[in-house]
Simulated assay, not measured.
Amino acid sequence: MRFGLLHTLTTALSLVSPSHAARILMGNDDGFGSGNLREFYRLLKEAGHDVIIVAPVINQSAQGGRSDFTTAANLTAPGQYNIVPAGAPSVGPDPNDSHIWYYNGTPAACTFVALDYVLPRYFPDWNQSPDLFVSGPNFGVNLGPIVFTLTGTLGATYAAVSRSIPGIAFSASNDAIAYTNVTNSSNPATWAASVSVNIVEAFLNGTSEGQSVLPLGYGVNVNIPPLTSDAMPEVVRSRLTGEADTDIAVFNETTKLFKYGNVVPKAAGVNACINGDCNLPGETWVVQGGSISVSIFTIDYDAPDVAYTNSVFAKIDGLTGGGDEGNSSTTYKKRVVGKNGVIPEKLLSGRDNIAR
Rank of each mutant, 00 (worst) to 15 (best):
L9T: 08
T11C: 13
S14T: 08
L15C: 10
V16A: 13
S19Q: 07
M26V: 09
G27R: 06
G27M: 10
N28R: 07
D29S: 14
D29Y: 01
L44S: 04
E46L: 14
I52G: 11
P56R: 08
N59G: 14
S61K: 11
A62I: 10
A62C: 13
Q63V: 05
D68V: 04
L75I: 01
L75C: 01
T76S: 12
A77P: 12
A77F: 11
P78D: 13
Y81K: 05
P85F: 15
S90H: 06
P93H: 08
P95K: 06
W101S: 09
Y103R: 01
G105I: 05
G105L: 08
D116V: 03
Y117G: 09
Q128T: 07
S135M: 05
N142H: 09
P145V: 04
V147Y: 14
L150K: 09
G152K: 03
T157E: 04
S162N: 13
R163Q: 10
I165H: 00
G167H: 01
G167N: 02
F170I: 02
S173I: 02
S173F: 01
D175Y: 08
P188Q: 01
A189D: 15
V195I: 11
E201D: 01
V220T: 06
N221S: 09
P226C: 02
S229I: 04
D230H: 06
M232H: 00
V236K: 08
R239E: 15
G242P: 04
E243G: 07
A244T: 05
T246Y: 09
T246P: 05
T254E: 05
K259D: 15
P265V: 01
N271V: 04
C273N: 04
I274N: 03
G282T: 05
V286P: 05
V287Y: 04
G290H: 07
V294E: 12
F297A: 03
T298S: 14
I299P: 03
D302W: 12
D302V: 07
N310Q: 15
S311T: 02
V312M: 11
I316W: 08
I316A: 12
G318I: 06
D324I: 09
E325Y: 11
G326S: 14
K334S: 10
V336Q: 14
V337H: 08
G338A: 07
G341F: 04
V342G: 10
K346H: 15
G350Q: 03
R351Y: 14
R351W: 13
R351P: 14
N353Q: 14
I354V: 12
A355I: 13
